[in-house]
């Protein structure tokens, strides 16, 4: 609790009062329903109101994590989620930073490049997917032609699971790098020009300036971006839906939850809605995201305190 300067008595309640609407919305729309999900995860709920809902204890968790080959398949999907998270986070972070630094330079046309790189973000997963399905059209599409020129070929999204998976990672990075770039750019622009001037006067090289001025002062943006990328990529699945469908060897947890929750695991059959089971799976994903997110948060905070005091 920090010293409050804007008066005591009744005036002390003003920040609480103004904070209330946002808090209420949050509890209503996010927190409340999520607690509901936790509750559902211990039942055999189908999501149909009026249908009997029985308390099944840890059955859903047991089935998801321990029962038969299906549980090993689930764990494989979990592993795949981590692989996806690792590649997307690292590549997107590095590219976003590189591009942000470059488009922050005083060279002509930076505005054009910024706009272009950010553009996919505004399109949404469905359209990103459509655009890439077209660009990676295997029967004489542009990328097929390029690969042909280099004497190779690819089945793209229709290829082997690992290949299709790699293409989804590429599209995911293409689609979201703009956000990372913008957040870095916002951070870069808060760094006063005098700092760079001072560094230049001190004769620092480009790399030294980056290392000693840019990088430490970017800390808030670094934190935001890393957290967003980790969490976002752990939860991302829409591109898998749009580009691949529910295919063996490519499922990630988020997609798995949606598919079992809404009876879409087999492509053409509408099976039962296993929302209790799906809820248990989403709690597992939640714990995973929470764990990785908290670890990242812990180290980032420590680093921030060290640098910015």
């Amino acid at each position: 609790m920090q010293a409050y300067h804007f008066g005591g008595g009744k005036a002390r309640w003003v920040p609480y009062l103004l904070l209330l609407p946002g808090m209420l919305l949050y509890v209503l729309i996010a927190l409340g329903p999520s607690i509901g999900t936790t509750f559902f995860s211990f039942t055999n709920a189908t999501g149909i109101r009026g249908a009997p809902v029985d308390w099944v204890g840890l059955d859903n968790y047991n089935e998801f994590l321990l029962m038969g080959q299906a549980s090993r398949d689930n764990l494989a999907a979990l592993g795949r989620t981590l692989i996806f998270c690792f590649f997307v986070t690292t590549i997107q972070f590095a590219l976003g930073l590189l591009i942000a630094v470059l488009v922050n330079k005083r060279v002509k046309g930076t505005n054009f490049f910024r706009t272009l790189y950010f553009m996919p973000v505004i399109l949404g997963a469905v359209i990103q997917g459509l655009i890439w399905s077209l660009f990676l059209y295997p029967l004489g599409g542009p990328m097929a032609k390029i690969l042909e020129f280099f004497g190779t070929s690819s089945e793209f999204f229709g290829g082997q699971p690992s290949e299709a998976f790699a293409w989804v990672i590429a599209v995911q990075i293409w689609a979201n790098m703009g956000t990372t770039m913008i957040i870095f750019l916002a951070g870069l622009q808060t760094i006063p020009k005098e700092m760079y001037e001072a560094a230049e006067m001190d004769g620092a090289s480009g790399w030294q300036t980056f290392k000693n001025v840019t990088w430490p002062l970017l800390t808030p943006s670094v934190n935001t971006n890393l957290l967003l990328n980790i969490i976002g990529s752990l939860q991302a699945w829409q591109l898998f839906l749009v580009l691949l469908g529910y295919r063996n060897g490519t499922q990630v947890l988020g997609y798995l939850i949606y598919a079992v929750g809404f009876g879409q695991t087999s492509g053409s059959v509408t099976s039962s809605f296993r929302q209790g089971y799906a809820a248990a799976a989403s709690i597992v994903l939640f714990l995973l995201v929470l764990l990785l997110g908290s670890i990242a948060q812990f180290f980032l905070n420590r680093r921030e305190r060290r640098i910015l005091g």
Binding site: A30, L31, G32, P33, S34, I35, G36, T37, F39, F40, A45, G47, I231, I257, G261, Q275, A279, S282, I283, L285, F286, V289, L290, G293
Partner: peptide, 8 residues
Amino acid sequence: FLPPALIP
């Protein structure tokens, strides 16, 4: 980190 809570 919260899971999507569509049904509740």
